[in-house]
Design a protein around this nucleic acid. Structure first.
Length: 490
RNA sequence: GCGACGGUCGUCCAGUUUGGUCUAGGACAUCAGAUUGCCAAUCUGGUAACCCGGGUUCAAAUCCCGGCCGUCGCACCA
């Protein structure tokens, strides 16, 4: 009954959730996918839920920054230096290897990941290293940077497509803190595209070269990470924590007292995140916060939890939660020569804020929701039902005249007109009523309004519920309110 | 990026071994009409594909070469 990757993929292709970009051309590159009408609708609603449950709930500031950023930004962020892997390629068979790891493995000599090309070349020569596949000689050492470099203006000035959305937040921080009357801790959020030149993009939405992130950077005073009055709201929220093998369930409060999470601030946001994902329809019983080991952590993170969900293809990372300390603001302060310290009003002291980040992959989240909501109803001819939350459903309600005569279709059109400005609805009069129900529930439409003969007499319609297939009869005049209530987030 | 395997209507599959009978077949989906009138009904008709480029040949979906894409493994993964 659990959906597989292939089933979700099939649904996505057949019903317009997502599909490969530029697919009519044979040179379409891998790692680029587009959202179709159903997918984009769901994605927009997912983002709206994120705004509601994280941005508004916590009183964060949201910005929308540029996707192209100057070279200096990435010098400061460390991406120019660290986002680069030294690669050596065999001149004979073409196999390529991560130079630093390869040398260390073969010789025991430790090599810095950011070692100069010359240095690596010298080491290869010194140890006479050869290709392990064919014993061929290695060619030049190249550096593969995962950022997309672009040239601005006629002089093609060096700039990059951002590899993560958060750098905008860091470079904008000082202005936002001043003009928006910021107080620590302060969350700044952004949704947008990021770009990474992945070596091996795979599995449709799961590893893309152009993808959506929803990032939240919480700026805080590192001396006050346990002063978090809002923590009371989430102290009983259950967190599933894991070291990668076993999972333990504890409340947020217990997590801190047992030392499983480092402080109230981090724990509060982890709890907020679980509460958010619970509302997306993802089964949080199949999720975990994986505490990353030292060698798994990103170069800027001192504490890192990945929020992962279980899918048919294994544990899938949806959100990276990193305590980035003052790594970013310090880097930008030095490179830009600006003072990015702010006054913490609570202590009346100047502080360079630390940052705790929730970096969410939207595309992966959409996939996970589809997979967790996909359901084959064995009781009813294996009908495929996407049991998605009404507030995330691409279409909220189908308008279906039972037949196209006796004025039923005109009546249905009237209802359609009355509702279409306020709800995502779909009018359908073709084929049998059963087929129309099935089509709707496959894309997760929670309700179907059927106009029948009784409608013509008493202005009532039936509302059919997707999951139970039960119907109830209500007045047309109550439809608006009924649907509005059904959209509520619970 | 390397290796193995693969790529035919929207989706899944047949056809490739042994080149011709393939102006490419089926199922599901989809569209139109008829019929029915509350759960994928039936009938009739239709739309719709050989990944791209080059080569071999009288003849290529089929054989060869290159590219692109996909799946899996390795590697990578913010």
């Amino acid at each position: 009954m659990a959906a597989s990757y292939d089933e979700v993929m099939k649904l996505a292709l057949e019903r317009g959730f997502y599909f490969p970009s530029c697919e009519i051309y044979s040179d379409a590159p891998a790692g680029f996918w587009e959202y179709g009408p159903t997918g984009v609708n769901m994605k927009n609603k997912f983002i709206e839920l994120w705004r509601r449950e994280l941005v508004r709930r916590d009183g964060m500031l949201e910005i929308d920054g540029c996707q192209i950023m100057s070279k200096s930004v990435f010098v400061a962020s460390g991406h120019i230096g660290n986002f680069t892997d030294p690669v050596v390629k065999c001149t004979k068979c073409g196999s390529s290897f991560r130079a630093d790891r390869f040398i260390t493995e073969k010789t025991g000599e430790s090599v810095l990941e950011r070692a100069a090309e010359q240095e690596i070349k010298a080491l290869i020569k010194k140890h006479d290293l050869r290709c392990p596949n064919c014993n061929g000689e290695f060619g030049e050492v190249s550096k593969f940077n995962m950022m997309f470099r672009i040239g601005i203006g006629p002089a093609a000035e060096e700039a990059y497509l951002r590899p993560e959305t958060c750098q905008t937040i860091f470079v904008d921080f000082a202005r936002l803190f001043k003009t928006m009357r910021g107080r620590l801790p302060l969350g700044i959020a952004q949704v947008g595209k990021s770009f990474r030149n992945e070596i091996a993009p795979r599995q449709s939405l799961l590893r893309l070269r152009e993808f959506y992130q929803a990032e939240i950077e919480v700026f805080c005073n590192p001396d006050r990470l346990n002063e978090m009055p809002k923590f009371e709201e989430v102290k009983n929220t259950v967190l599933r924590l894991s070291d990668g093998s076993s999972i333990i369930e504890v409340t947020a409060e217990e997590a801190i007292s047992k030392g499983l999470t480092p402080n109230k601030l981090i724990t509060y946001y982890l709890a907020l995140l679980v509460e958010f994902y619970d509302k997306t329809g993802i089964d949080v019983k199949r999720s975990r916060f994986r505490n990353l080991s030292v060698d798994e952590k990103a170069f800027y993170a001192s504490v890192a939890f990945d929020f992962e969900v279980e899918t048919s293809i294994g544990w899938l990372e949806l959100v990276a939660c990193n305590y980035r300390s003052d790594y970013d603001l310090k880097g930008h302060a030095i490179t830009s020569k600006q003072n990015l310290e702010v006054l913490d009003s609570a202590t009346q002291s100047k502080v360079l804020p630390h940052v705790f980040e929730l970096s969410m992959g939207i595309d992966r989240s959409i996939y996970a929701i589809l997979e967790h909501c996909y359901y084959e109803d064995k009781q009813h001819d294996d009908r495929v039902v996407l049991r998605i939350k009404p507030y995330l459903a691409p279409i909220l309600v189908g308008i279906l005249p039972l037949m196209t005569k006796d004025g039923l279709d005109q009546k249905a059109h009237q209802i359609n007109s009355a509702l279409k400005y306020d709800f995502d609805i779909f009018y359908d009069e073709s084929g049998s009523i059963g087929r129309r129900y099935r089509r709707l529930e496959e894309i997760g439409t929670p309700f179907a309004i059927t106009i029948d003969k009784a409608t013509m007499q008493d202005d009532t319609v039936t509302i059919r519920h997707r999951d139970t297939m039960q119907q109830e009869r209500i007045n047309i005049s109550d439809l608006h309110q009924y649907l509005h209530r059904a959209l509520g987030v619970r």
